[in-house]
Structure formats: C-alpha cells, structure tokens
Simulated scan of single mutants.
Amino acid sequence: MIGENLRKHRLKKGITLTELAQRSKVSKSYLNSLERNIKNNPSINLVKRLANELGTDIYQIIGEEKNSENPINEREEWRSFIKNVRDAGIENGELSEYKELIDYIKWKNRKVGG
C-alpha cells in the first residue's frame, strides 16, 4: 500500500522518480522498489522526508487515518503515557512528532504481523 500511495502523491506533485530520490536523499532504485512494493519497510525518517518533499504528511504515505480512535481499553494506558511525557517536560506542541512516531510504529508492526 505504501508504494501506491507514494507513487500517487509523486505523480500528483508532477515530479519524476529521479527528482524525488535526489530531493529525499535516497537511491532511485530503492525508491522504485518502494513504489513497486518490493520493499515495504522504510524508516520513519525516510517516510518523513518523502512526505515533506511531496507536500503531504506521513499518514498519507503510509495510508493510515490521522485521527483514528484508540480502543477503549487503551485509553488509560494513553493517559498514563501522556502524563509521563508531560512530566518529562515535553510541551503539547511537541506531542505531534511523538504521535507520528507512534502511529508509524503501529503501522510497521501491522506490516510485520500481517
């Protein structure tokens, strides 16, 4: 799925595979493998670079809903996590980066398990 999303956004932006590879500092062959779903396990840093170059966010690249609901049984765990994050001095504005990372890890875990 990541390959189709990547290709769709690249074509929508009107840039070639070579241009995107150069801009995102990744080899053209690796990027081609991602688009063809031969490789489907890119790093979070690469996904962020690609999303940035394509003018979108990681959720559009990995094909996840940005504001997906957590199951009820996880809410208390999330509350505890957020309390720990705030206790560590991390501000609300910085939380979006952590949410992106957590969503990416959840996506990656589903890919490995599924």
Rank of each mutant, 00 (worst) to 15 (best):
L54Q: 01
N41C: 08
A51F: 02
S96D: 14
G63C: 09
I15P: 02
G55I: 05
V26N: 02
L101H: 11
K99V: 15
V112S: 07
K39E: 08
V47K: 00
Q60T: 03
K28S: 05
I61R: 05
R86D: 13
L31K: 03
E74G: 07
N41I: 06
L95I: 13
I102E: 10
K66I: 03
N70Q: 14
L20V: 05
L17P: 06
N67S: 12
I38A: 08
K83N: 14
A88V: 01
G113I: 08
L54F: 00
S33R: 09
E19F: 01
N41S: 08
F81Y: 11
V85Y: 03
S68E: 15
K48F: 00
A21H: 08
R86A: 07
Y104E: 02
L31F: 01
F81K: 09
R75W: 12
G55N: 14
L95H: 07
N84F: 06
I38F: 06
I44C: 04
S24Y: 00
L46D: 08
I38D: 07
I62D: 02
S24P: 03
K39N: 14
N70K: 10
N67F: 12
P42Q: 06
A21W: 01
E53H: 05
N41Q: 09
I82K: 07
N45F: 14
K106V: 08
G114N: 13
E69I: 10
R49C: 02
K66Q: 14
I38P: 09
L95E: 09
E53R: 00
S27I: 01
I72M: 12
A21I: 06
L20P: 06
N37C: 12
L31C: 05
A21V: 03
I38K: 13
E53N: 05
P42S: 08
I58W: 04
E64P: 06
G93I: 08
N92V: 01
L31R: 01
Q60V: 00
I44M: 08
I15R: 02
L101F: 10
K66V: 01
V85H: 04
S27P: 03
L54R: 04
N70M: 13
K25Y: 05
K39H: 15
L46V: 07
K99N: 12
T56H: 01
K111V: 12
K28N: 04
E69F: 10
N45S: 13
I38W: 08
E94K: 15
N40Y: 09
N32D: 13
N40V: 04
S43R: 11
E91I: 04
N41D: 15
N52R: 10
Q60S: 07
N32P: 08
L34T: 03
E100G: 13
E94W: 03
N70S: 10
I90D: 05
I72Q: 13
L50A: 04
N109K: 12
L31A: 12
F81A: 09
E100M: 11
W107E: 05
I90V: 14
R79A: 11
E74M: 15
T16D: 08
G114E: 15
R49S: 04
F81G: 07
L17H: 10
I72D: 15
N40A: 04
W78G: 07
E53Y: 00
P71G: 04
R36S: 11
K48L: 13
E35R: 11
D103Q: 15
V47Y: 01
G63I: 07
S24T: 02
I72S: 13
A88Q: 13
I15E: 00
N73Y: 15
E76W: 10
S29K: 02
Q22S: 10
N109I: 09
T18A: 11
K28H: 04
E100F: 04
Y98C: 10
